[in-house]
């Protein structure tokens, strides 16, 4: 089934997204994010499956810290990302864009696309930890507070993408 590509005007969608972010600041005093939720989820998973692995590891201990959340999954960002999925589903359902499919360039196989999706996700998780946030937490939320580190990270995100784009163009042609 061909998905509808009748997307909202980017300025209107951006204005809506900006108001949501502003509301989050007014209500909670914090911005939006995404990668932190995956870090919490992963830390919780490891603490359940292989509890000995979390002891002494500063990464897991940070996300399992009871000061951060009473339970690793009762974390603000985890619930926010659940909301992202609900909101995304609602919008997709209205536009008839919900269907099982693989989004890829015409020149690569489904298997190759899924391989690179997995690799890309792994790379971005590591990048988000170094940058202390991803496109949502740093570029969008920190960017709107005129945070110096967020702007540097944002410029480097675009820079990294443009540097590599030519070399991986076959993925998307």
């Amino acid at each position: 089934m061909k998905r509808s590509e009748n997307y909202m005007n980017p300025y209107l969608a951006g204005f809506g997204l900006g108001l949501v972010l502003l509301a989050s600041y007014i209500l909670m005093g914090r911005g939006l994010g995404a990668s932190g939720a995956v870090a919490s989820f992963t830390s919780w998973g490891v603490s359940e499956i292989a509890p000995s692995q979390v002891i002494g590891n500063g990464f897991f201990e940070k996300y399992l810290d009871p000061e951060r959340a009473p339970h690793p999954l009762k974390d603000w960002l985890v619930f926010e990302v659940i909301g992202v999925m609900i909101g995304g589903f609602i919008s997709g359902a209205i536009a008839k864009r919900v269907s099982f499919s693989i989004d890829r360039g015409a020149k690569i196989s489904d298997g190759a696309r899924l391989f690179f999706a997995f690799i890309g996700g792994s790379i971005m998780a590591v990048g988000a930890q170094f940058a202390r946030g991803c496109t949502s937490g740093q570029a969008l939320s920190g960017g709107s507070l005129l945070n110096l580190g967020s702007w540097v990270a944002m410029i480097c995100i675009f820079g990294g993408g443009y540097l590599l784009a030519w070399f991986v163009r076959r993925l998307w042609q």
Partner: peptide, 28 residues
């Protein structure tokens, strides 16, 4: 943050999503 930003950009163009948009893609 410079190193992390560059890694994020590289992962974005390889994987096709960023963490937030991958949640939207998964939900649809």
């Amino acid at each position: 943050q410079i190193v992390g930003g560059l890694i994020l950009g590289i992962g974005f163009v390889i994987g096709g999503y960023c963490p937030g948009t991958s949640a939207v893609a998964s939900a649809t």
